[in-house]
Amino acid sequence: MLKGFHTAGAGMMANQRYQDSLSNNMSNALTPGYKQDRSSFRAFPEMLIQNMGSENIPTQNGGLNLPKNHIVGPINTGVYMQEDQPLFEQGDVRDTGISTDLALQNGDLPDETGTLFFEVQNGDEEVRYTRNGNFTVDAEGFLTTNEGYYVLNEDGERIQTGTEEFEVSADGQVTSPFDNTAIGLAYHPNANDFVKEGDNLFRNEGEEAAVDARGADGVNFQVHQGQLEWSNVDPQESMSEMMRSYRMFEMNQQVVRMFDQSMELASNQIGKLR
């Protein structure tokens, strides 16, 4: 009975975590460049049940009692949500008419799991990656994200346009009255090595470093000025998953309540002294 408690409780916790993940996707459905999380579930190790008995073998001295185990079969002990993995599918590209908005559109890529990023500098002056091209120009004329992180060029230096009146070509070349440079675009063959760090930034935790997208063989892309890549969250699909997950949570909750009632009956009624 306690195993049933554990199995149903594990199902409730897994669906609660799944609900949190889906809610985060829904809350970022309108965030430019946001990549939705896909949750993966795994089962706890199965347990093998055996029936432990004995067998009496007749002998000249009256008989021999030997232990005999009979395998009943395996029993599952529940599931858990293993991790959230960003889904790096291309989001819709939409017009904004704002010169500081840039959309990075994937072309043909040599690797099935490969993807492209803008390069930015976080608050600790470390290189991070983003698909959110909702940029702006700060008081000193530097191109930054809305959170104030500096956008980098292909040499890893900050881009200073000096004004919002600048032009960006399809290959990411920035032309402004203050400076002419190329916006930093990184390519990595395995996007699964990237983890979310907050503020729509990604950190590379793989052993292989990202490379300049312009020099990578077989990598094609386009940078669209005055446009933004939208989130790849499908609100209808996410809402359907939230409803399904909630119903699974309720089912496990009912199982826990049933076991609780059974244990109450066993402890208060069956075991009552008369």
Rank of each mutant, 00 (worst) to 15 (best):
T145V: 14
N51L: 05
Q36E: 15
L64H: 14
N15P: 01
H6T: 07
L116V: 04
Q90V: 04
E250M: 06
V195Y: 02
R42P: 00
Q173S: 10
V223I: 11
F202R: 04
N268I: 02
A186S: 13
V127D: 01
K272A: 15
D95W: 04
M243Y: 13
D124G: 06
G73Q: 15
M47H: 06
T163L: 06
R131E: 02
S27W: 05
D124S: 10
G215D: 12
L228K: 13
D20Q: 07
V79K: 14
M243F: 14
N220I: 05
D37F: 12
R214H: 13
A8T: 06
I71V: 12
M47Y: 12
V93R: 10
R274K: 13
V219T: 02
G184V: 02
E264V: 05
Q253K: 10
A43K: 04
R94I: 13
T113Q: 09
V127E: 00
V255C: 06
R94P: 00
G198F: 07
A216S: 05
A10P: 06
N106S: 15
V72L: 07
N220W: 00
P235Y: 11
N252V: 11
T59L: 11
P58F: 08
L87I: 05
M239T: 15
A210I: 00
E154K: 11
L201Y: 09
I49P: 00
G33Y: 03
A14T: 01
V93C: 03
E83Q: 14
Q225Y: 03
F178S: 11
F118M: 04
D108V: 11
R244Y: 01
L22G: 10
Q16R: 13
D37E: 12
G91N: 12
R214E: 03
V120I: 14
N134E: 14
T7W: 07
L48N: 03
D260N: 12
Q236A: 15
F166S: 03
M13S: 01
G91K: 04
L102M: 11
D193S: 05
N132K: 12
A216V: 02
L102F: 13
L273H: 08
Q60H: 11
M26F: 15
Q227N: 02
E164W: 02
G53T: 06
L201V: 00
V219Y: 02
T96H: 07
N252D: 09
A29W: 01
S245P: 00
F142K: 10
S99I: 05
N180S: 14
F41K: 08
F142Q: 02
G226L: 00
G114D: 06
F117L: 04
G271R: 13
M81W: 04
R203H: 04
K272Q: 15
Q254L: 03
Q222I: 15
T77H: 10
